[in-house]
Computed example of a mutant assay.
Amino acid sequence: MTAEPHLSETALVEEATKKSGLVWVSGPGAAPETRALWHVWVDGAAHLLGDGPGEQPLPAGLGDGATAVVTVRSKDKGGRLLAWTARVTALEPHGEAWETAVAELKGKRLNAPDAETMTDRWARECRVLRLDPVSADTRPPEGSLAAPPLPTEATTRRPVPDALPRLLFRRRKRDS
């Protein structure tokens, strides 16, 4: 990692992050939690929304004054393009920076159940974080960056019933 990103690195961080729909953000700590998060790029920084009901969970320990590592994927190949270190700032609800970021976040938020009042809900129940680039690492990664998926209640825990293929095959045969 370089101490200060050069102009070309800053431009690369901005362009790659803007084009990527998701970024992987690692929180601080000895064993950082990494999550794929949607974001927007506003005023030279990535902005995240989360930790509220129905919104994306943010990595543990990610808060005001923390340092995070942001990994950006290549839009065409899906692999790691670059990683950059960010200084995290929590934005105060209804402040000027918060309003600017939320205006962009609102346009990117898909399938919101309360589209008309979601910004009020965000101010009450969610956090908006600004991730300012501090340094960039444009070198290719060493080794695999694969990680096991995080635990979720959405995981199927039972095998497919033995009779299911026969039922599907029989139904398809009758329909012909």
Rank of each mutant, 00 (worst) to 15 (best):
E116L: 15
L48C: 03
H47A: 03
L110S: 05
W38V: 05
G52T: 08
G79P: 00
V23Y: 02
G78F: 00
V13A: 12
G50I: 07
A16S: 14
R171F: 09
L110G: 02
E116G: 10
K106W: 13
A86N: 02
R170T: 06
E116P: 01
V13K: 11
V128Q: 03
A45P: 04
L145D: 00
V70F: 06
W98Y: 09
G143D: 04
P161H: 11
K19Y: 04
G44L: 15
D76F: 13
S26P: 06
H94R: 15
W24E: 00
P32H: 05
P93W: 04
G21T: 05
A83V: 10
S144N: 00
T10S: 09
A36G: 14
A154Q: 12
Q56P: 01
A30C: 05
A97T: 00
D175A: 15
D76Q: 10
P148Q: 07
P140E: 11
V42I: 15
G54S: 11
L49Q: 06
G50W: 02
R73S: 10
A147Q: 14
E33H: 03
V88E: 02
A66F: 11
A146N: 03
V25D: 00
P141E: 03
R166S: 15
G29C: 04
P53D: 14
V23N: 01
A83K: 01
M118P: 00
P133D: 06
L129D: 02
K19H: 13
R170G: 07
V70H: 07
T85I: 09
T67L: 12
E96T: 08
R109D: 04
L58G: 01
S176Y: 13
R73P: 08
A163M: 13
A90M: 14
R157W: 10
P165V: 07
T100D: 11
H94I: 08
R170H: 13
E14T: 07
G63F: 01
G63M: 13
R35K: 10
T117P: 05
W41D: 01
K77A: 13
K173Y: 10
K77E: 15
S135T: 09
S135E: 12
G143M: 06
L81C: 03
G78A: 01
E33W: 01
S26Y: 03
S135F: 04
A68R: 02
P141K: 06
T89R: 08
R166P: 08
A66W: 06
R157S: 12
Q56Y: 08
G63W: 07
R157C: 12
V128R: 02
L91Y: 11
K19F: 03
G29H: 05
V128S: 02
E92Y: 12
D76E: 14
R80P: 03
E14W: 12
G79Q: 00
A45C: 14
